[in-house]
């Protein structure tokens, strides 16, 4: 019973299962003991919550705990009532603030991702071309900020870019500007914050693809008379595309819903959708509208997340 299935699941065909080897770790039961706990836990606490958000986006606010109406009500005599309220979705279209913040989030995430790519690509390239020993140190240097606090790093950046901060002092001292430039509470500050916080996420997948790049291809291309910039666009860039896409998605997707960065570095105009959701929830206590905004963000992110999953799963299956 177990032998054929275990032959199937082992990837190495040269390794026929011996009579004492039972499939997997401890047979069928053990297999489910390993698979089920993470599967069930994540379904319940990661997947099912989206269904609840979807459900509550059709509810109405109410002065009660929790502050929204039930969709299904059981009236006297066991009559079921179903109240389906599309008003929250209509509301998102009537108040400009949602459309504006929605588009502004896309724009901000897009340009920050581009900036991150422009800075991260040469950095990853330089690391990939370093000697092995230096490579490890450089990678540690890049990853270390990711380990330390995200919130505190945004706060640290604020210390640099605020009006009397180090950046302005340095610019004035160098004579590049004569009056302090306003960086803090501008769109640029938000871009800077996202690039600063997410740069390691861009560099690591880029490094992973650039490191695997076969250098002899570039040499062959040079031997055949191709100038380096052309070799770069013909060979290096296309081959590193999986890294470019993975890195960009790792920056773009979380940046769309970013709350801390626009809240601490942006001004009142830098209204990203994450901030709107936060205010709807914590200041207006309108849970149904906040859920509706969450659903709207998810609709926007479905494509990018699918793209990221596609590349990621392929990469993992490739190794596995």
């Amino acid at each position: 019973m177990n032998a054929p299935s275990s032959a199937h699941e082992r990837s190495a065909p040269a390794d026929p299962p011996g009579p004492r080897h039972r499939s997997g770790l401890t047979g069928r039961l053990g297999r489910w003991l390993i698979v089920l706990p993470p599967l069930v836990f994540l379904v319940v606490f990661f997947l099912v919550p989206f269904a609840f958000a979807f459900k509550i986006s059709f509810a109405q606010t109410a002065v009660r705990i929790p502050p929204f109406t039930d969709l299904i009500t059981v009236g006297s005599g066991g009559v079921f009532g179903l109240s389906f309220n599309l008003g929250n979705y209509a509301y998102l279209f009537t108040d400009d603030v949602y459309a504006i913040s929605y588009l502004y989030s896309i724009k901000t995430a897009f340009f920050s991702t581009i900036l991150c790519l422009l800075l991260g690509y040469p950095m990853a390239y330089a690391i990939a071309r370093s000697p092995k020993a230096t490579q490890n140190i450089l990678l540690l240097v890049i990853i270390l900020p990711f380990w330390t606090s995200f919130l505190l790093r945004v706060y640290a950046l604020e210390g640099i870019i605020r009006d009397g901060g180090l950046l302005n002092t340095a610019l004035q001292w160098l004579g590049i500007v004569h009056h302090p430039v306003k960086i803090m509470r501008t769109t640029f500050a938000v871009y800077l914050g996202i690039v600063y916080s997410y740069l390691p996420f861009m560099i690591l997948p880029l490094f992973a693809t650039l490191e695997k790049l076969d250098h002899s291809l570039l040499e062959a291309s040079a031997d055949l008379g191709s100038p380096p910039w052309k070799s770069f666009f013909d060979i290096t860039l296309p081959l590193s595309m999986p890294g470019v896409i993975a890195g960009s998605m790792l920056v773009f997707i979380p940046a769309i819903g970013e709350f801390v960065i626009p809240s601490l570095l942006g001004g009142p105009d830098n209204l990203m959708i994450g901030r709107v959701l936060w205010d709807e929830f914590f200041n207006n206590h309108d849970w149904p509208v906040a859920s509706t905004v969450a659903v709207a963000v998810l609709v926007l992110l479905a494509g990018p997340i699918a793209l990221y999953q596609h590349y990621n799963v392929r990469e993992m299956e490739h190794y596995g």
């Binding site: 979380p254 819903g257 969450a294 963000v297 997340i305």
Partner: peptide
């Protein structure tokens, strides 16, 4: 990759 704000509210 899921924005924290979405995970949080759901």
């Amino acid at each position: 990759v899921m924005p924290e704000i979405i995970t949080g509210i759901t």
